[in-house]
C-alpha cells in the first residue's frame, strides 16, 4: 500500500539497532502512552509520544505522500491523449486530487518535525520509498480505468481503517483522501465498464490491462503477515488496524464480483469461492517480483524518479526568483 512498510529486513534491523541505542524512554512512559492509545485517545502533533511512534508515522506518512506524487506520473502519461474532453477533464481532476493528497500528507508529516524539503530530498535520493504499483507502465488507455478501479480501490481498502488511526492529523487527512479516492475508484470502474461493454477490441484492451495490473495491485498491501515484523507494534499503537493479509483478502472479495459483472477474467487459475470461509481462495503471489521492484525500481522506477528530479530542478530557479522578489519587497517595506 502507499503506506505499507517496504523496508527490507536489513533496513529494519539497522533502524531497530539505532533506536535501541538512542532510547531513553522508560517503561512507565511507554506504558502511559499505550494506556492513552488503549483508551482510544487521539494523539496530536504536540503531544508527548515515543520516538518509535513518531518515526514510524513520519516514514509511513511521507511514503504515502511520495506515492501520491509519483502516482501522478503513470496517469499523467494519458492526459494529453485522453479520448474525449470529458475523460480528459476527469483524469486531470483526479491527478490534481493526488497532488492535493501529497500536499496535505506532507503537511501532516511536517507536524511531526520533519520538513517537506527533507522528505522530498529522501525521495529524490532513493532513500525514501513509494508504492511499488507506480513503477508499472501504462501502455493503453484501459490502464486509466484499471488503475482507478484496482489501485484506488486497494487504496480505499487500506485507508478507510486509517481514518481511525491514533494520530489525529493523519486520520483527518485520510477522511478527505478517502472521499476523493472513492470518486477515483468509481470513475475508473466506469471507464472499464465502457470498454467491457464496447467492441471486442475495447474489451480485449480492458482484459489485457486487468491481466497486467491484477497481481501488482495485490502486492500493494505489502508482504504476507508472517514476513511483516513491524505490524504487531503498529497494531498496538493503532497506526495500523488490520493485517496486510486481511486487507488483501477484503480487496479480493470485493473486486472479484465486480470483474465478473463486467465479464472480465481475473488472471488467477487458483481463484475460487470458498464456501466454508465465505471468502475467495487465491493463488500464490510472486513476492520475488515485489522485492525486485522495491530493490531495483521495476520497469519505470528510474524514469519516475528522473521525472521528479527534473521537475524539482526546474523549480530551483523559480524558488530562487520568488525568494529574491519577496526579499526585495520586504526591504522596500522596511525602508
Amino acid at each position: 500500500m502507499y503506506s505499507t512498510d517496504l523496508r527490507t529486513d536489513a533496513e529494519k534491523r539497522r533502524a531497530q539497532k539505532a533506536d535501541a541505542k538512542r532510547s531513553v524512554e522508560d517503561a512507565a512512559f511507554l506504558d502511559a502512552f499505550q494506556a492513552r492509545i488503549d483508551a482510544g485517545d487521539i494523539i496530536e502533533a504536540k503531544d508527548i509520544m515515543p520516538e518509535g511512534y513518531r518515526k514510524t508515522l513520519v516514514r509511513q506518512i511521507s511514503q504515502h505522500a511520495h506515492s501520491e506524487i509519483v502516482g501522478m506520473l503513470p496517469e499523467g502519461n494519458w492526459v494529453t491523449r485522453a479520448p474525449t474532453l470529458r475523460r480528459k477533464l476527469i483524469l486531470l481532476a483526479k491527478i490534481q486530487d493526488e497532488a492535493g493528497h501529497g500536499l496535505y500528507l506532507y503537511s501532516a508529516a511536517e507536524t511531526l518535525g520533519r520538513s517537506r524539503d527533507d522528505m522530498v530530498a529522501d525521495l529524490l535520493s532513493g532513500k525514501a520509498k513509494y508504492s511499488t504499483i507506480f513503477t508499472y507502465p501504462t501502455p493503453t488507455w484501459a490502464d486509466m480505468g484499471t488503475i482507478g478501479w484496482l489501485v484506488d480501490g486497494a487504496a480505499i481498502t487500506n485507508q478507510i481503517p486509517l481514518c481511525r488511526c491514533s494520530f489525529g492529523p493523519y486520520a483527518r487527512a485520510m477522511v478527505r483522501v478517502c472521499k476523493e479516492e472513492s470518486f477515483h475508484q468509481r470513475q475508473g470502474y466506469e471507464i472499464v465498464t465502457t470498454l467491457a461493454q464496447g467492441t471486442p477490441e475495447q474489451k480485449q484492451m480492458a482484459q489485457e490491462s486487468l491481466d497486467r495490473i491484477w497481481w501488482p495491485s495485490l502486492m500493494m498491501f505489502g508482504p504476507p503477515d508472517g514476513a511483516s515484523a513491524h505490524s504487531s507494534q503498529n497494531m498496538k499503537w493503532k497506526i495500523k488496524r488490520h493485517s496486510n493479509d486481511e486487507l488483501r483478502q477484503r480487496f479480493i472479495d470485493t473486486t472479484v464480483p465486480q470483474a465478473e459483472f463486467l465479464g472480465l477474467k481475473i488472471p488467477d487459475p487458483d481463484l475460487k469461492w470458498n464456501e466454508e470461509r465465505g471468502r475467495y481462495d487465491f493463488g500464490d503471489i510472486d513476492w520475488s517480483e515485489m522485492w525486485a521492484v522495491i530493490k531495483g525500481g521495476g520497469i519505470c522506477g528510474k524514469a519516475r524518479i528522473r521525472a521528479r528530479k527534473a521537475a524539482h530542478k526546474e523549480g530551483e530557479w523559480v524558488r530562487a526568483a520568488a525568494a529574491a522578489y519577496a526579499q526585495k519587497r520586504n526591504s522596500e517595506k522596511a525602508a
Binding site: M72, G76, T80, L92, L103, A307
Partner: peptide
C-alpha cells in the same frame, strides 16, 4: 495539461 505532474513545484502543479 502537458505540465500535469511535471510543474516546478507541487503548488504550481495544482
Amino acid at each position: 495539461s502537458e505540465m500535469c505532474g511535471h510543474a516546478p513545484e507541487l503548488e504550481l502543479d495544482l
